[in-house]
Write a protein that binds this DNA or RNA. Structure first.
Lengths: 242, 242, 242, 242
DNA sequence: AATGAATGAGAATTCATTCAT
DNA sequence: TATGAATGAATTCTCATTCAT
């Protein structure tokens, strides 16, 4: 993967600073004045926790650094001992959410077997993670655009890593002969899966009023595997119920 | 549809002010000091045009009202003759984009016939509209969350109207016996179509590097109608090419 | 009367521009673009009427020229055909109020006779005028300070003219042998009378809750003529009632 | 005293928020971001000092917050650490002036004895305080009207407290048999005294040119106690000089 | 390390005044 | 004469960031 012209959820076309999204990319460093690594970690955790709940409530721009400091339980001066700019907080928050999601997914995708069953299971699991973390997901996708150019590649990288998980899962199925899909088809499929998960969170104002999570999983899986035609026929035959 | 607890792309849980998303809802009025309706329309068009390009570049929050005025080609004082608050600009922008998208869709969905072919055609057309307006789409979905509570129902309503278009299209197919889907399945399907369209714009940083629009349309349609299994089999049989 | 260092209800120490308060001073001209004198007068009357009611409600500074124009029944453009600056409106308003008050007083003080009775009658009449015009009185005294330096002498002059009326009335009594007061005593007395009148308007929040106008007139007159000692004795003797 | 329909020096008729002027009323709190109470006091003192001198010069409305900050010796940002709105400054200024006046009066009225002599002494003292603080008095009475509804009761209350001081002084004389006055007469008298004091400041442009403070005190006292008639007779008899 | 007072650039909004029609 | 759209200087207030204690 080379030079990004990333415009995922981002406004500015990326300039020189923002390039190469390499898998296995190192974390972007956020400078702290305080040396004690353990303390830095603890303070940042407090900070992220406070910030997430504030961002949920009012978004990044409407949240002030003072509020973040207060929510984190320390003073504004202390806040700035652990970050350099307000945007650092946003980066830490996004990074942390990605990590949590990835972690939860990784956990489950550990025992990848390359069967259709395990793929379905993986998808269902992903949807459930999304459901549990919907607030965070919302925050992340809505505010990530406010990250500056140099934080961007790291975030895009995370997105790619997530897609890669599903790609791997699907590829295993292909290798096992359970599926027969081209590279490109795998790519698009994994992105579609990810987006359908996000959909549960983004469109919850309507979806979550119409369906329970499990219904949603079932129906989406049905569509995903059998498509409109398949679903249509199955319904006709009575294989699946309304 | 009743009382919304909308959390679509919005942070604050909606209070009393923001309820009822009624189809056929009247436009929310944005007050102008200037009386000449025609002039108001013209100036607002200038304003929207300028604002969209600024919002694309730097987002709503980072764009100042002075910049908007300048981009629109008039003074800050004049800007405020046509709106009341900065947020009004955002509302006008979102409203305008929705209108354009809807219009473009409506145009095409006029000759709805209730055949699978026409449904496919409608979807393809929608994807193309998205492609043409991707910048605007991006702006709308990323900034709409900054609208205040009282502008919200109008925006949610637009979303519903868009979903309703596809619901109608699909329902026609069902009525014609071309498809056999339950109410709920129609619902979820139309939202999925919409989201897959948005995906082309949201994930363009990766999708548009891998696929041409027509490829994307073809592949998504394939998945949508036949699902993973169908695609998989077709590929095996050589019905479709990689 | 010479060089004023007027600080009546005015903030800035007066510079060169503001001097000589001469009795019989000509009115300060307020320039109009419109030539037709009659029209100018009519429009200004509309303007003053509207402005007074607005100033009553929200004060000079919080009232906008647009509001004044609207209240006057014409457009902002038209307003500026009859004045040069917003402050001109204030001057016209103050001037007009003074004129009304003076006129009402003059009317009554016409038949000055130089008896104590007629002095009492004059005072009572003045109090009644104040009562009738209290809103205007309030406006005038509260906003006059916003007049610029060059409008000031005219206003001070009006104040002097009012004091002069009572001075004349009292002087007549002195000349008639009904009273025996020095120049200075006459001066201070006439100012005191004027201020006691204003008091009815300025302190109405408490006075007008405790007394009717007629009670107030009676009591103030009693004090004015007999003083604390006199009132005290009269009460003791039962000459006056509580 | 209950429900006020105060229109003292105020434009808007008071709504629900502005009621009950209770003696012993607590001070209206002005919120500060800074915690250190002592510092808050010091900074506010600087602020008030600067503001008073600016208000004297150009009035509340024509003074900008930046000017206030500068006059106080700190930045605009710092100013807003100690107040919430510009109006807070006005409230602090008015409050401070009242406090100073009250304090100066209280000091002296401490040794109230209920003799006519001590009453005269109290009045003279009040006039001298007014003289010393005339600039502040002017500012207070001219700008107080710009206070919002919720600051009003506090200010009216102060006015009442001042009147109450004289009422007490007079009442003592009545109780001692030195005077014989009704409740209402006491009321009106104390207000008259207060207003005659203010008169020295409000009409200084003419009074202070004609009289020295001591002359003014003497003459007003004469009138106050003996009235026109008394003064007139005394002059005739040669008891007092011109 | 922690604190929180100080800073000032920057933002939205208002409104007196002008001027072309 | 009358109109009202256009203007932009001026104003209040916010908030990220710094730095002395």
């Amino acid at each position: 993967m080379t030079e990004e012209k990333a415009t995922f959820f981002f406004h500015e076309p990326l300039g020189a600073g923002a390039s190469k999204v390499v898998s296995g990319m190192k974390k972007r460093e956020v400078q702290a004045s305080v040396k004690d690594e353990r303390l830095v970690q603890r303070r940042r955790d407090q900070m992220i926790k406070g910030a997430v709940s504030l961002f949920k409530e009012k978004g990044f721009h409407r949240t002030t650094t003072r509020e973040i400091a207060k929510a984190a339980g320390f003073s504004i001066g202390t806040l700035y001992e652990y970050i350099r700019t307000k945007e650092d907080v946003l980066y830490l928050v996004c990074d942390s959410i990605y990590d949590h999601v990835s972690e939860r997914l990784q956990e489950d995708l550990e025992h990848k077997q390359g069967t259709l069953e395990s793929l379905k299971h993986g998808i269902a699991n992903y949807f459930r993670v999304i459901d549990e973390m919907q607030e965070e997901i919302l925050v992340m996708y809505q505010e990530a655009k406010s990250l500056t150019k140099d934080a961007l590649p790291y975030v895009l990288n995370k997105e790619n890593e997530m897609a890669a998980m599903f790609e791997k899962l699907i590829t295993l199925c292909v290798e096992n002969g359970e599926l027969n899909l081209s590279e490109k088809q795998i790519r698009i499929l994994s992105h579609t899966i990810i987006v359908e998960g996000q959909m549960w969170s983004f469109r919850r104002w309507t979806l979550q009023k119409l369906f329970t999570l499990e219904e949603y999983i079932e129906m989406q899986t049905e569509y995903l595997f059998s498509g409109i035609n398949g679903v249509s026929k199955a319904l006709q035959k009575g294989t699946i119920t309304k």
